[in-house]
């Protein structure tokens, strides 16, 4: 599903003394099947933007089009939109409530009014794609580890079979391996299920490693937009808005200053390694 955002503005507390412009003339096209990372410091507008994309907030002005259809047009069914755009909030495991894992994942499709077989089919597929086997189906979600709980919560959204998946810091509070598992899973949803994915993250290292494109938000505006390499080339500007580059990018800059002929655009350990090995054999 492609998404087009045209001159979107959103003002909190409009027409009051406390009015704050949370989104300021945001224009953006997200092609079908893209994995987009959104970064920005706390309060930069990234969560506000996400909440517009499944109609939780309505822009003060501007348009949003899903597959060319204007969601603010009269007669547009927001209910359909919410079915197609899955939103995984921060700490989604706080929203688990059913007595066992399987019922929790069934909750969403059940509310769509689907037949029982279809509901269970979907729940099974969703649990399989997050890597939870049948052994877990009848366990209480509250007895699982942090990473497992989070995967159950993501499965609950996947069971709605959305075309767009939006995740707000899905790895916060997880241990390093738990982070890697969740991100690998999300990447797989993009490559195998062809979902369009929007990932909000505070981890520059994670974003550099997994996404196709990065959007940097600052004061409600798009500050930078490009591939990880293009965005992290602006490391000074990123620091000015409270962000940073992956640690390896800094290493490459340090090495260049020390006289090495290395590629300062490297944003992952793998790229940095290749470039350093090359520089060493030339030296």
């Amino acid at each position: 599903m492609s998404i087009e955002i045209e001159h979107l503005n959103y003002i909190y507390g409009d027409e009051t003394a406390m009015a704050v412009k949370a989104l300021d003339d945001v224009t953006l096209t997200i092609p079908d099947g893209q994995f987009l990372g959104i970064i920005g410091h706390t309060g930069s507008g990234k969560s506000t933007l996400m909440q517009h994309l499944n109609g939780l907030l309505k822009g003060s002005s501007g348009r949003i089009l899903f597959d060319g259809q204007d969601i603010y047009e009269k007669g547009y069914q927001l209910k359909d939109l919410r079915r197609q755009v899955g939103l995984v909030f921060q700490y989604p495991e706080h929203q688990l409530f059913e007595i066992d894992v399987f019922s929790d994942v069934c909750f969403g499709p059940k509310n769509l009014g689907l037949p029982k077989e279809e509901i269970e089919e979907r729940a099974k597929r969703a649990l399989e794609s997050v890597g939870l086997s049948e052994d877990y189906y009848h366990q209480s979600p509250f007895d699982l580890s942090g990473g497992q709980k989070r995967r159950v919560a993501i499965a609950g959204v996947l069971a709605m079979e959305p075309k767009v998946l939006i995740l707000d810091e899905p790895t916060a509070g997880l241990d390093p391996q738990g982070r890697e598992e969740i991100l690998t899973l999300i990447k797989k949803l993009q490559t195998e299920s062809h979902m369009t994915i929007l990932l909000v993250s505070h981890s520059m290292e994670d974003v550099a490693e997994y996404v196709d494109r990065i959007l940097v938000m600052n004061r409600g505006r798009i500050f930078l937009d490009g591939t990880p390499k293009e965005v992290f080339a602006h490391y000074k500007e990123l620091e000015e808005v409270g962000l940073a580059c992956p640690q390896v990018t800094y290493v490459m800059h340090d090495l260049k200053e020390a006289g090495f002929t290395v590629d300062v655009d490297a944003t992952t350990v793998e790229e940095a390694k290749r470039s350093i090995l090359q520089a060493l054999s030339l030296a």
Partner: peptide, 29 residues
């Protein structure tokens, strides 16, 4: 289920590829 800082991982991987580096490098410097 843990990891090392990115700079330590980079040093470790370079070492695996034959660059003579000591173990446990912690900082960019």
């Amino acid at each position: 289920r843990l990891a090392v800082p990115q700079v330590t991982l980079l040093a470790h991987e370079l070492k695996q590829s034959g660059v003579p580096l000591p173990d446990g490098i912690l900082t960019r410097k």
